[in-house]
Design a binder for these strands. Structure first.
Lengths: 342, 342
DNA sequence: TTGTACGCGTTATCAT
DNA sequence: ATGATAACGCGTACAA
């Protein structure tokens, strides 16, 4: 029989070849300072020439961590969430953490299941991306609380009061209020608020919209606060929704949307109706994503500081993991980025 | 001292509490058939009431796998790549594999580093998403070959002849050729080909464009085969590029693009120039992504079967992992999805 | 500075 | 059907 050349190298092989104990090899591996210069050099050379790599599982077992963070999001292909995941992964990697991605869908069951799965894989922390992870009922969020009993839980775009849960979000209320006020001040009389979800974040935006009307002493009509149930990427559906509204007599001279994609639909709706933007119809989007720049004219949109939020989130997480006391909530404020649609 | 209530439960605790050996507990855990019904029930009940979860690291060490697949992509927030990652993650999850996401950027060094990292984390396989992972030189691809010596490597949108490397891609050449021919047959005289990358895939598209011209006996002019170096999401930059071209006398009545985002830029360019689409200018995109539906009119685009490709890729991978012999290359053919831009 | 020996929590191979 | 015990590969007290 040939010696098994394919067997993976272990610390023992290096130990043998370099004539030191495995302890010393381990020390070299982990950059311990109390190793003689020459010994260290010798061991390192052996490791290099044999092509040794430490076994991550064994390490994980001993240290009880594999430096992996779980990232949960409903749909990592959503324009906005994709950016968030990208920024987060990038920051984690720079700090030597890997990212285990779990797309959960928008249903509660899927989210619970995914988080449980991450726990069972023993990730060091979980990051929940998107306000969809905040359920309306206390009961609906229980699984998050449970998870937080084991590992730190970070939330992007949601706020929650559980121990070991850290939240980073944007003041959607104020941003939407400000955007709406701007439209009012520009003379818009019939402003429509259009949303496509009922998340925590969506509710705050809606409240901001209403607050603006109230502050400016404008009537608040439920008919002008709309929820459009089409698929999240179904622009055609949203256009039809607006069309129906319009034909039902609910006409408008401005639209405030909860997502850029709805603003895109509004711009296309205007094109279809022969309405001129911004003269006949003004449109404001939300997220300041790529979608705000694809139409003619481009869309004025609320920048909700995604990159800074992600950076903050990861930084907070790293500090929490190293035992530092950190703020449970970080709130950013948005900014209206002006383009041609208002 | 209190007994350590916080210590994680092990198979020993269950063993003790249920009065059987750890071997039996392990058997129950893994659904072995040779366990007495009652024993099994008893052990399961103990596990449930104590809230036991097996330690994934220990399992990994023993079985030499944690059922994790590494997904590499240059930029997971790119509209197209994000969808690919999403589809792949979904399929993997359905088959009980987790996804370790690594965004590498478009530089060779980043890709090498990321793949090495995945190897060191002992993933069961690596999936390279996007044709950017195919370098022009043999040398540039060596790191892939090395990785494949250890684990199966799957490539989406690229083709390569290495052992243990499996490729799934679309016939971009034929699809682009067909799209171009359609424009010629519709009477377009001056067709521009616009690309924003020089990947394997981009080259095949370009070749298809040229082949169409040749087959229809049209002159092939380098002036009409263009590479636009602006950022991948920089629509404004692409518009300026087209504007400059136009002003330099390189006018056109149709554009074939290598990516939907360039087609979006083309549509916006037309709006800016006062050209009517499709009358004065016809536009064809590539990928049939969300971006093909955001403009007015919407963009005719090549559907390159992303979802079917991802499904095929994961299926192939799973089979490879279970030792079956599988095709090294799977080629899909694209389809032109007709919308208002031609 | 270096080496010995044990623990980490499983799975798997033997016996019985 | 069940139990004892040896891997799995590493980190680290403790000893020298």
């Amino acid at each position: 029989m040939m010696p098994d050349k394919n067997r993976k190298l272990t610390i023992y092989d290096i130990s043998e070849k370099s004539g030191v104990s495995i302890a010393t090899v381990s020390r070299v591996l982990n950059g311990a300072t109390n190793v003689k210069r020459e010994t260290k050099a010798a061991v390192e050379s052996v490791m290099r020439e044999m092509g040794y790599t430490p076994n991550a599982f064994a390490r994980g077992l001993g240290l009880d961590t594999m430096k992996t963070i779980g990232i949960l999001c409903a749909d990592s292909s959503d324009t906005y969430l994709a950016k968030a995941v990208y920024y987060i992964e990038e920051q984690l990697r720079e700090n030597n953490y890997d990212s285990l991605l779990c797309c959960t869908g928008y249903e509660a069951a899927g989210k619970r299941k995914a988080l449980d799965l991450l726990l069972s894989k023993k990730v060091d922390a979980a990051i929940l991306v998107g306000s969809t992870f905040l359920e309306a009922s206390e009961r609906g969020n229980k699984y998050i609380n449970c998870a937080a009993a084991q590992i730190p839980v970070m939330m992007l775009n949601a706020s929650m009061d559980y121990p070991n849960v850290y939240c980073v979000f944007c003041d959607d209320y104020a941003a939407t209020k400000q955007a709406t006020e701007r439209l009012i001040d520009r003379g818009c009389k019939k402003i429509l608020y259009l949303s496509n979800s009922k998340t925590y974040s969506a509710k705050k935006k809606r409240a901001g919209f209403i607050a603006a009307l109230e502050e400016r002493r404008r009537p608040v009509s439920e008919a002008y606060i709309r929820y459009c149930e089409t698929g999240r990427e179904d622009i055609t559906g949203a256009i039809e929704y607006l069309d129906k509204l319009w034909n039902d007599g609910i006409t408008f001279d401005a639209i405030v949307t909860a997502e850029d994609i709805l603003a895109v639909a509004a711009v296309k709706f205007a094109a279809k109706k022969g309405l001129s933007i911004p003269k006949d119809l003004k449109v404001i989007g939300y997220n300041n994503s790529l979608l705000a720049t694809v139409t003619s004219p481009e869309i004025t949109s609320v920048d909700n500081r995604l990159k800074p939020m992600c950076d903050q989130l990861v930084e907070t997480l790293l500090n929490v993991l190293s035992g530092r006391e950190m703020p449970k909530k970080c709130e950013f404020s948005g900014e209206l980025v002006i383009r041609g649609s208002i």
